[in-house]
Design a binder for these strands. Structure first.
Length: 684
DNA sequence: CTCTTCTGTCATGTG
DNA sequence: CCCACATGACAGAAG
């Protein structure tokens, strides 16, 4: 039964197999309704073989390992292997029956359409029955549509654009759950063409070389792709589809055969599901993709349980009802919202054998996940539910400028599974200074992560939200595929787990750039990581009233509120510090200018003083000369020269000049001085 | 490697 | 008491 695990986990693979076994003559309990005469398409296909199909050269499995299709010519001249022989045998059995298979029940319809969708995923026109969409009562509309949170950023919009049109799970949820795989595959081609273009542009080398149909569809405009989907839906249940399904059964069996031959146990299957729209040939990856999705599905069921009581930041009650689905939506971009259905609702509509198988396999899978892992999932879900991007945050907190002082290299060198540990050290690294938020982050997040040393690598994919957002996703996918599967010959050298190198400093720095190429500040990166729906600039510059109004208007978590307040405080203080420094600088500059001005003024005054002194000296000299000239020409009554030491010249008020003896001049001067003193005394 | 400068941040004071 | 702002002090990055 281990063989069946992946197939059951693939969301109905057991049905494939049981139907296949029924074709091989084994008893199964499926509702198979046989008609008397086979339609021509099926007969032709069975007799003439399948139309040419891509060689799936990109298949991680050897092309000779059974991935060739029943009735298909081996394009490279490879000899049919035992699987092909089995296929031939089954073909003969079907021919012996000579009757077509008509789906009459929902299981059969799903069976046909899931397989047809698998073909559609490979670019072939196939049926796309949508059991989930056919019966969608009480779904309350698009659960994604309810996510009208303002916190949903552009990334979410991108996600929404890349995700298939959400279909409301029916009450039973059987078809919806079982259709997840096929819908992922088929609708990814239709609705995610944009994303696929993006991804394929980056990793075009991973696209199947010969899968022209898929490439063509992936490159179609959305309208054209949707048109294809419509036509596909219209043609569901036609006979050609059934032929495809038969064909696909052979392929599935052969691929399963290869899976077992490859020794790919459940644990060996890459936990990172190659997103069905990631450019990988989903057909060629049926085994891995489906199994991975199955793992994701189980994980998300757990998350749904773990998160059912968690509160988030959306106030809309309608939205809150879908909160349990939200983490799932964000955690797995490759899955559909319907996958978040409660397990009970899914199993309730399954046949008993399916229930048993499902339970067994789910337990097998889940028992591999120890409690720590589940705790981590819960943590990641908590973070993701709040729009938390783990990869983004891990980048953020890996940064060398992080206050945590954690070394990126030290973290990365610790173990090869550090990709998963990112969820650990990123929170640890989130702690910067001793701000409230950071201490809170450290406490909460570390506590949530727990101290277990090595989170299981199986859950790396839980960190994956949107492959379109992060090239690293592609790298991860490469890793997990390549170390498991054979490399395609002549394929470009792809990074392996050994050759993988963590983003260099420059690369990480480039990720810190915003849309305009500006380097994001730490707060900006933190706000982005927590998906705070406001820019740092807004938070800082917003008036107090608006700020408080904003905090009350939006349903924000404590972490977000704390971060917003810290951002505002730091931003305000930063501006204040800048203003303060600018002011201080201005003051210093002004003082320096004052000093210069005063020094210049002082020099001017000095020069003026010197000039005045010179003038005074000149005047004194002139007066002295004049004095001597006058006395040299004066004569007393006897005609003798007047001695200037004994006499002085005194000017009277009327302009006359008198020659007065110096004694009189001195006494008169004293009297005038005394008079002046008296006058001043009287005034006082 | 050391020093200086710039910048962000915190703690504290002030209005 | 709360808040915004100012400012000294400190640490880290960068030249």
């Amino acid at each position: 039964m281990k063989l069946l695990k992946p197939w059951w986990s693939a969301g109905g693979g057991l049905l494939h197999l049981t139907f296949l076994l029924s074709l091989a003559g084994l008893r199964v309990d499926l509702d198979l309704y046989l008609l008397l005469s086979p339609p021509a398409p099926l007969r032709d296909e069975l007799l003439l073989g399948c139309p040419p199909r891509p060689a799936y050269a990109l298949s991680p499995f050897p092309a000779s390992g059974g991935w060739g299709r029943a009735g298909q010519l081996h394009p490279k001249g490879e000899e049919p292997d035992p699987t092909a022989q089995l296929e031939s045998h089954l073909l003969r059995e079907v021919r012996a029956l000579g009757v077509p298979f008509i789906p009459r029940t929902r299981v059969d319809a799903w069976l046909v359409h899931s397989v047809a969708a698998g073909d559609a995923d490979r670019g072939l026109v196939g049926a796309s029955v949508d059991g989930g969409s056919q019966t969608a009562p009480g779904g309350g509309g698009d659960p994604r549509g309810a996510r009208g949170s303002p916190l949903a950023g552009a990334e979410e919009e991108e996600e929404a654009a890349a995700e298939p049109t959400a279909q409301v799970p029916d009450a039973g949820g059987r078809a919806s759950q079982e259709n997840e795989v096929l819908r992922d595959k088929s609708e990814a081609v239709d609705h995610s063409s944009q994303h696929e273009e993006r991804v394929s542009a980056q990793k075009g080398k991973f696209l199947p070389q010969s899968n022209e149909d898929e490439n063509r569809i992936a490159n179609k405009p959305d309208q054209e792709a949707e048109k294809t989907t419509e036509s596909r839906n219209e043609r569901h249940l036609n006979w050609t589809d059934i032929s495809f399904s038969l064909e696909d059964f052979f392929q599935l069996l052969s691929s399963q055969h290869d899976c077992s031959l490859e020794g790919n146990s459940l644990e060996d299957i890459p936990p990172f599901p190659g997103s069905v729209n990631d450019g990988m040939n989903s057909s060629a990856y049926d085994c891995s993709v489906n199994l991975s999705q199955a793992i994701s599905h189980d994980v998300n069921l757990y998350e749904a349980l773990l998160l059912c009581s968690n509160n988030t930041f959306r106030r809309d009650p309608v939205v809150r009802t879908s909160q349990a689905q939200e983490p799932f939506l964000q955690l797995n971009s490759h899955t559909n919202p319907e996958q978040a259905l409660p397990e009970t609702s899914l199993t309730g509509y399954l046949p008993p054998v399916d229930n048993l198988m499902r339970t067994a396999v789910s337990q097998d899978l889940l028992y591999d996940l120890d409690a720590n892992i589940l705790d981590e999932i819960n943590l990641m879900s908590l973070a993701t539910e709040e729009g938390f991007d783990p990869l983004e945050v891990s980048q953020l907190f890996e940064e060398p400028d992080s206050d945590s002082g954690l070394s990126l290299n030290s973290s990365h060198n610790s173990t090869s599974s550090t990709k998963c540990n990112s969820s650990h050290y990123m929170y640890d690294g989130a702690t910067g200074h001793s701000s409230e938020l950071e201490s809170l982050s450290r406490h909460d997040l570390e506590g949530a992560v727990g101290g277990y040393p090595e989170p299981s690598g199986k859950f790396c994919h839980v960190d994956h939200r949107n492959a379109s957002n992060f090239q690293g996703d592609l790298d991860f996918q490469h890793i997990f595929h390549n170390h498991t599967y054979h490399l395609r010959p002549n394929a470009p050298e792809e990074p392996t787990s050994e050759s993988f190198s963590w983003p260099r400093k420059s690369q990480k720095r480039s990720r810190n750039l915003d849309d305009t190429g500006r380097n994001l500040s730490r707060d900006e990166r933190r706000a982005k990581a927590l998906h705070i729906p406001f820019s740092v600039d807004e938070i800082v510059r917003m008036p107090v009233d608006s700020f408080n109004n904003m905090l009350s208007r939006y349903y924000l978590t404590d972490l977000q509120v704390s971060l917003i307040r810290d951002i505002r405080r730091r931003g305000k203080n930063k501006v204040a510090a800048q203003n303060c420094r600018k002011r201080k600088l201005d003051i210093i500059l002004n003082l320096e200018n004052d000093i210069c001005n005063l020094q210049a003024k002082k020099e001017t005054l000095k020069r003026e003083r010197a000039q005045c002194n010179k003038a005074i000296d000149l005047m004194k000299q002139k007066l002295h000369n004049l004095y001597h000239d006058v006395f040299s020409q004066l004569r007393d009554d006897q005609g003798r020269p007047v001695n200037p030491n004994h006499y002085a010249l005194q000017c009277s008020h009327d302009g006359t000049v008198l020659i007065v003896p110096k004694e009189l001049v001195m006494s008169g001067h004293k009297k005038e001085v005394q008079k002046g003193k008296r006058k001043s005394e009287r005034r006082n």
